[in-house]
C-alpha cells in the first residue's frame, strides 16, 4: 500500500506569521489539469486592515536599518528563492507554465532580488542632492520611504511580477501589503515561507490572497496606505484613483490591458525605487 502524502494547508504571510483569513473563507485552487490542489485563503478587507497595521508597525524599524543591512537581507531572500527554486517552479507549473518557462521565471525573480539588493546603498546618492542655494545655507535633499505601500499584482508571471513590484518598495525601507494573483496565488504562498526565513523582519512584506473585486476598494481608500502600485484594468484604476484622492495617496497604475514584459531589463530600474520615495529638503545656515 502506497503511503498517502500529507498536503500543506496554504496560509498567507502577514505580520511575520502564517495565518488564515479572519473570515475563515477559502477558495479552491485547481492545477493546470483542473484537479483540486488546495484551498487558498480568501482574504477580506479586515485582513487587509490587519496587514496594514502589521506593515505600519514594522515600518520605522525597517527604514532605520542601514542600507547595507537591507541589501544583505534582500540578497538573503534571493538565496532562499534560489534554494527552493524547484518548488517555486512547480508552483508556477500549477498554473500551466512549462517547466522551462517556470524555471526561467524563478531565475528572473531571483536575479531581480539580487538587482535591488545592490541598489539599497546606492540610489540615495543618485536621487538625493546637495542644492547650491543663493544664500548662506547648506541645502540638501534626501529621500525617505513613503511608508506602507499597497501592491496589487497581476495574474501573469505570478512570482516575477509580484517580486518586481515588491522589491523596489522595500529596497528603500517601505513596508508592503501585496495582493497576489487571484488565479495563481500559490507562488505567493511559497514566497511567504521564503520571506519568513530570509531575515526580513516580520511585517515588512505582507502577502494576501483573495479576490481583487473584494479588496481593491479597500486598497483604494485605506488612508494609512501612502502609496499604491497596481497592475489594474481601467475600472480598477478609476476606483483606486478615486479612493486615493481622499487621502492624497501616491499612485502608480500599470495598465493590465497592455502587456508588460516582466522579464525585460526595463522592468527593473532606479525609477521604480523612486516611485515609493518622498523627497525631503533640509535647509541649515552656514555660519558661526
Amino acid at each position: 500500500m502506497t503511503r498517502l502524502p500529507i498536503t500543506k494547508t496554504p496560509k498567507v504571510y502577514v505580520g511575520g506569521a502564517f495565518i488564515r483569513s479572519e473570515s475563515a473563507r477559502v477558495y479552491p485552487l485547481h492545477d493546470a489539469s483542473g484537479a483540486f490542489y488546495a484551498n487558498i485563503p480568501q482574504c477580506t478587507r479586515k485582513d487587509l486592515r490587519n496587514a496594514v497595521e502589521a506593515a505600519a508597525k514594522a515600518g520605522p524599524g525597517w527604514a532605520r536599518r542601514t542600507a547595507y543591512n537591507r541589501g544583505q537581507i534582500l540578497y538573503r531572500l534571493g538565496e532562499m528563492l534560489e534554494a527552493r527554486a524547484s518548488e517555486l517552479a512547480a508552483a508556477l507549473q500549477l498554473g500551466g507554465a512549462t517547466p522551462a518557462a517556470a524555471a526561467r521565471e524563478v531565475a528572473a525573480a531571483v536575479d531581480r532580488l539580487v538587482y535591488y539588493a545592490g541598489w539599497t546603498d546606492k540610489y540615495e546618492s543618485l536621487l538625493g542632492s546637495v542644492n547650491p542655494v543663493a544664500a548662506p545655507y547648506f541645502n540638501f535633499t534626501v529621500t525617505e520611504p513613503m511608508g506602507v505601500v499597497g501592491i496589487i499584482a497581476p495574474d501573469e508571471c505570478p512570482l516575477l511580477a509580484l517580486i518586481t513590484l515588491i522589491a523596489p518598495a522595500i529596497t528603500s525601507g517601505n513596508t508592503v501589503v501585496a495582493l497576489a494573483s487571484s488565479k495563481q496565488p500559490y507562488p505567493a504562498i511559497l514566497l511567504g515561507e521564503m520571506l519568513a526565513t530570509s531575515d526580513l523582519p516580520g511585517g515588512v512584506v505582507n502577502l494576501l490572497t483573495g479576490f481583487r473585486k473584494e479588496l481593491v476598494p479597500t486598497f483604494a481608500t485605506h488612508a494609512h496606505l501612502r502609496a499604491l502600485i497596481a497592475v489594474a484594468d481601467p475600472e480598477e484604476r478609476k476606483t483606486l484613483a478615486l479612493g486615493a484622492a481622499d487621502s492624497v495617496k501616491r499612485v502608480r497604475l500599470i495598465k493590465a490591458e497592455v502587456a508588460t514584459d516582466w522579464f525585460a531589463d526595463a522592468a527593473q530600474s532606479l525609477q521604480a525605487i523612486r516611485d515609493t520615495l518622498e523627497f525631503k529638503t533640509t535647509w541649515h545656515p552656514v555660519g558661526t
Binding site: 545656515p285 555660519g287 558661526t288
Partner: peptide, 13 residues
C-alpha cells in the same frame, strides 16, 4: 553661552 543663550550668525545678518 548656556546661561545667556547662543546667537545664530546667519539669523542676525
Amino acid at each position: 553661552l548656556s546661561q545667556i543663550g547662543p546667537v545664530d550668525q546667519v539669523g542676525i545678518d
